[in-house]
Design a protein around this nucleic acid. Structure first.
Ligand SMILES: [Mn+2]
Ligand SMILES: [Mn+2]
Ligand SMILES: [Zn+2]
Ligand SMILES: [Zn+2]
Lengths: 143, 143
DNA sequence: TACCAAATTGTAATAATTACAAAATAGGAT
DNA sequence: ATCCTATTTTGTAATTATTACAATTTGGTA
């Protein structure tokens, strides 16, 4: 059940703890780019002793080890992503969803730019998602 | 002195007020992508009656009118930019500077992506800036 | 010049994150 | 298997950015 997450932590020489395993599993099973509160309140149900601070701490160490990445697209809170390769993100200003955008981008894997050493690249799009546009138009397809 | 900012506001049918003019001037003269606190504390010196809330409100209406844009690169606070064309940004994790990056990007002026309507595109790079790398190496040029 | 919708101001409330110290525990040594 | 200790977890308090709100002021217009 948790073997792959145990391995992931061991491979990075990070201590294997329940909160870390649970957080990894949650992110692996919810590709919705959740915020800390969403992760915390969801895990809290099955693990009542979990502390919010632990979620912050755990995500921080996972981030340092590049197992997860944080997304600053919303501007008010960090969103987390268990990363599967470089990709861009879209934030819907109507429903709040954050969606993965997989498009070619020559700057995505850049390691140096203008003489600066680049460790991280983030590409953000914001607007109204396909789904919200449909709703807006009342689902009409003709007329 | 303030004519161009007056015109800018009038062109957008926004009321011309002192705080708005001062904020525009400040952003025009400081391309450092300041946060609200920096704008507020700087303007407060010459305009003691200025309220922090007014800075928030003013930036909000300027943003709605696309006169300024907010940058979410830091993750902890919004940074503001009086925009001169689309460009990317670089955040130095050492000195905190946010620098303009002008590189070609096929996605920068995208208006639709994956069926989603795109209103805004942000490209962020994070790492260590050229300057901080020099300092790190102790300015040595030989040996 | 008088009016009023909109803007400004100050303060209080909220939300996200960080600081910190005490208790618990993972993993290596015995 | 037990012990040891550095690391982690936990709970609470503090901090920081932002928003809510009501009273006051003011820009633009008649
Ligand atoms: Mn993603
Ligand atoms: Mn800029
Ligand atoms: Zn949507
Ligand atoms: Zn720097």
């Amino acid at each position: 059940m948790y073997e792959k997450y145990v391995k992931l932590l061991k491979d990075h020489a990070i201590k294997v703890t329940s909160p870390r395993l649970e957080i990894l599993k949650f992110l692996d099973e919810h590709h919705t780019h959740p915020n800390v509160e969403e992760i915390y309140s969801s895990l809290k149900k099955k693990h009542p002793s979990l502390s919010r601070t632990t979620v912050y701490n755990s995500l921080e160490i996972l981030k340092k080890n590049r197992i997860v990445q944080s997304i600053t697209i919303s501007g008010s809170e960090l969103r987390y992503d268990i990363q599967g390769g470089l990709h861009h993100h879209f934030l819907c200003n109507r429903c709040g969803a954050i969606l993965d955008i997989s498009i070619a981008c020559p700057n995505m894997d850049r390691t140096v730019e203008g003489g600066h050493r680049v460790d991280e690249v983030q590409g953000y799009f914001k607007g109204i998602c396909k789904n919200c546009q449909k709703k807006e138009k009342g689902w009409r397809t003709n007329g």
